[in-house]
Simulated scan of single mutants.
Amino acid sequence: MKNYFKKFSTMFIMLLVVIGVGVIQNGTVANAATIGEPLTSPEAGWTAVDDTDSKIVSPKGTINNYTERSHYNRSLRIVAGMNGKIVFQFYGTKFRIISEISSLRSSKINVKIDGINVDNITMQGNTSVNQALVYEKLGLPLTIHYVILTNVDGGIANTNMDLDAIHLDDNGYLVPYVESISLNKTSPILTVGDSRQLTAITTPLGLDLTWTSSNSNIARVDSTGKVTGVAEGAVIIKATTENGLTEICTVPVMPRGTDPNLEPRELEYIVNTARAKGDNTNNPGGEVTIIFHGSSDTTLSLVKTADVKDVWIGDNFTYTLVITNTGSKTAKAVVVNDPAPNHIDFNVSGVTTTQGTVDSSSTSKNIIVNVGDILPGGTVTIKIPSTVIA
């Protein structure tokens, strides 16, 4: 009988230990954290990142930081306002959101992972809970993931959300937030009444964008990037992220041609070539030649300057070319061709341009920049690092 009670006591104690730490699954102990309950320190298999980490950004909303004993590391980030956001990227397979639950928090927060809306969560409750587990996502592929928390609560008073900490895999970590954007069309041509879909490719995927047209009387753009021609002319379509990162696209709008077998591009598309020429390192200007394959309906001007007055052999300096469309029509497919003087070598890899790309055929003696279309009044600046060789 004593042995029986001894065995029973041992089993009972082991059961208490298991209940205290979680449930055994496949020989390992699983975490037992509960949504809505306090989780003041990371469980086994997890690591904590404080809300003050600079890799956690809030591109939209007013940020308020609070310091109290009841918060993890004595800090709490509150993002106030409708559509306020908390954004982070991490490497790992799982994450948890630790926040404060109270009656003054949002009742609906959208969770977007890798560009896909996956859940809605709440931080609102009648009873305040500090360092509460409000969201958990498990079983993600082992790679870098992008997470956006967006406050979509429609209430007036309860529009704030907060972040106390993020829990990641033991081997997980935050990565710096980096944004990029590009458009799938560099210069689509429309006819009046026709539409063309522009697609923005963003890193990370699924960034919220604002689309705008420089002149909706010529072409309008909707919230998805679909551009519709309204009248003859040209516009700049702009896609902008919430962080202010912008990509632009010039869209010419042509009138409808009377011959249904003739494309508008063949009727109206004009190629201009601007050639900038200079004889020495202190040439304040330059001569521009424009070759029009079609009717001449615009003009380009160029100012070419150097950032030095006197140079010696071996000195480095920078040529700056500023090309401006001084006409009333769009200059199409502009190419800048700049030959170097005999005593100058260009640094091809260091050339920068505010529009277009440096042609791969460029050499230390000749720089070619494929600028593309320049709208009326538009300006393109090209900087060419140079070295005096003789």
Rank of each mutant, 00 (worst) to 15 (best):
M1S: 13
F5A: 10
M14I: 15
L15A: 09
L16A: 09
I24Q: 06
Q25S: 13
T28H: 14
A33P: 09
T34N: 11
A44W: 12
G45M: 06
D50G: 09
D53Y: 00
S54K: 05
S58D: 02
K60W: 11
K60Q: 15
N64F: 12
E68I: 08
S70R: 14
N73H: 11
V79T: 00
G81R: 04
G84F: 07
Y91D: 02
Y91T: 07
E100L: 15
I101F: 10
I101Y: 09
L104E: 12
K108H: 09
K108T: 14
V111T: 01
V111K: 00
N117D: 11
V118A: 06
N120Q: 08
M123R: 03
G125N: 09
G125I: 12
S128R: 15
V129S: 05
V129E: 04
Q131E: 07
K137L: 05
G139N: 06
L140D: 02
L140W: 05
V147C: 01
I148L: 04
L149T: 00
G154I: 13
N160E: 06
L168Y: 00
L168N: 01
Y173A: 02
Y177K: 01
V178F: 08
S182L: 07
N184D: 06
K185Q: 11
T191W: 07
V192I: 14
V192A: 02
G193E: 02
D194S: 14
R196N: 09
Q197G: 06
L209V: 04
S213W: 05
A219L: 04
D222S: 07
S223Q: 05
G229P: 03
E232F: 11
A234G: 07
A234R: 04
A234F: 05
D259S: 03
L267I: 09
L267W: 02
E268S: 05
T273S: 15
A276W: 08
G278W: 14
N280F: 13
N282V: 15
P284I: 12
P284G: 04
G285F: 14
I291N: 14
H293T: 15
H293R: 15
T299G: 12
V303C: 03
D307W: 13
K309N: 10
D310L: 13
W312V: 14
D315F: 10
T320P: 00
T320E: 00
L321S: 02
L321N: 04
N325D: 07
T330F: 08
V334Y: 03
V334E: 01
V336T: 08
D338A: 09
P341L: 07
I344G: 01
I344T: 03
N347L: 10
S349G: 07
T353W: 06
V358T: 05
S364D: 12
S364F: 10
T379P: 07
I382G: 03
I384T: 03
V388L: 08
